[in-house]
Design a protein around this nucleic acid. Structure first.
Length: 110
DNA sequence: AGACCCGGACGCG
DNA sequence: CGCGTCCGGGTCT
């Protein structure tokens, strides 16, 4: 059976992500820092297996270089296209493959 | 222990 | 800018 426990790390990732408001995005690296971890990849893995989608807005996480990054296990293709549409619906646009307005990157309060 | 992963930083041409 | 390469950390085999 597929019931999988949410690890402590995953729980912290999801909680931190929920701080990011609609219309904003954050990056894997920023989330990692926020958790005191140093691995953006570990964050990506946790999001990839996000059991609370779309309650936990994993589509609001992009790469540090302001490209979109993956979505639901895919680095490109239909899933990523869906991610772009979800963001566009919130006013977060991409241009030339990069975030159009870098000011939309959310600053976590300290 | 080793492989795998939705990234990131750095070096070089 | 576009590589290539190493890195780190959490989870799954």
């Amino acid at each position: 059976m597929g019931e999988r426990r949410v690890s402590d790390f995953e729980g912290r990732v999801y909680a931190a992500l929920c701080e990011v408001p609609r219309g904003c995005v954050t990056t894997y690296g920023l989330l990692a820092k926020r958790l005191g971890a140093a691995s953006a990849r570990a964050v990506g893995q946790a999001l990839r297996r996000n059991p609370f989608a779309p309650g936990v807005p994993c589509h609001r996480v992009i790469r540090a270089d302001l490209r979109m990054g993956g979505f639901q296990g895919a680095a490109a293709g239909a899933r990523v296209a869906r991610k772009r549409r979800m963001l566009a619906a919130e006013g977060v646009l991409f241009e030339g493959g990069r975030l159009k307005e870098p000011a939309r990157v959310f600053r976590f309060p300290r």
